[in-house]
């Protein structure tokens, strides 16, 4: 893929996303604005998972944990009357980073199926912790009455303003991961995925590098959780359910692991197809499942592998 194809792809993607609000307003179809905002929020979660799964080879089956922590950070602060996004969002990211540090410190010592199971187990623990928090709605979760406030800078209760905030943060996340994976740090991460024995033989112990990536990915997904809580104006333990972890993982794989645009493409296709099918039949999952299996069989390198210019960030 030449660099021209890449410039064309990214320019087209950014222009399309930036023009969506006026188009949707002209067509009087606000549903699509809502859908695309949801897509981009999940894209951020998938971008963060792609950093560790795609580039680092760490198949975390518990990434939804950080969606939940980010969401609960916003919800709990709002519950106590703290609405400032300047506090909520950094706290969402910081708490997610801390939990990722604890989970990563233990699980990165394992590999393969054990790593998958341990990350899953930790996230299930957090899920049941959420269920047990009666004060914050327990199983049912709780409504968030007021969206995060940014002292006059931007008003998230305006759906269009919120849309652009999400767009900017998603593009920034893509750029961040793009820089990370091409830096010296990123080379260590990718090399350890490619051939760990060789990395050790030339002097790298991958553990700390992987842990650092795991923490960065957790913080970024915590931001996605804070956005998701604002998007749904609701927070429930379902944010952390293992099927949610599976969805994020599927977005990464469907879009193309270790590609720049893959997480966005995967999130877009999965959520758009899901909403189309759900509008058509209540048995939409029975159709979505086989479609996903076929797409994995036919797009081995993911959707980004078949779109010129989409492979690199």
């Amino acid at each position: 893929m030449g660099s021209r194809a890449r410039v064309v792809f990214w320019s087209a993607a950014i222009v399309l996303l930036a023009l969506l609000p006026p188009v949707v307003a002209a067509l009087k179809e606000p549903f699509y604005l809502d859908l695309m905002r949801r897509v981009m929020i999940f894209a951020i979660a998938a971008i963060s998972l792609n950093l560790i799964l795609g580039y680092g080879g760490l198949v975390s089956f518990g990434h939804a944990a950080y969606l939940g922590i980010g969401g609960y950070a916003v919800g709990i602060l709002a519950f106590y009357g703290v609405y400032s996004g300047w506090l909520q969002w950094p706290l969402a990211m910081g708490a997610s980073a801390l939990v990722a540090l604890a989970i990563g410190a233990v699980s990165i010592r394992t590999s393969g199926i054990y790593f998958i199971m341990i990350t899953l187990a930790f996230t299930q623990m957090l899920y049941f912790l959420g269920v047990s928090l009666e004060m914050f709605g327990g199983d049912d979760g709780m409504r968030i009455k007021t969206r995060s406030q940014f002292s006059g800078l931007v008003d998230l209760s305006d759906p269009v303003a919120f849309y652009y905030v999400v767009l900017v943060l998603m593009l920034a996340s893509m750029y961040l991961v793009h820089r990370l994976v091409n830096s010296r740090f990123g080379m260590v991460l990718r090399a350890a995925k490619s051939n760990e024995a060789r990395s050790r033989a030339i002097g790298f112990s991958p553990y700390l590098y992987r842990l650092a990536a795991f923490v960065i990915a957790g913080a970024l997904c915590g931001l996605a959780g804070a956005l998701l809580a604002n998007h749904t104006a609701y927070i429930t333990p379902d944010f952390m359910h293992w099927t949610r972890s599976g969805e994020i993982m599927f977005m990464v794989i469907l879009g193309g692991i270790a590609t720049g645009a893959g997480p966005l493409l995967g999130a877009a296709v999965l959520l758009v197809v899901e909403s189309l099918l759900a509008g058509w039949t209540e048995h939409w999952q029975a159709i979505l499942g086989p479609l996903l299996i076929l797409s994995v069989i036919f797009f081995r390198r993911g959707l980004a592998g078949v779109l010129p210019g989409a492979r690199d960030g």
Partner: peptide, 9 residues
């Protein structure tokens, strides 16, 4: 190699 920003290539 905790250098996160500059492209190694």
């Amino acid at each position: 190699s905790f250098r996160f920003w500059r492209p190694a290539r």
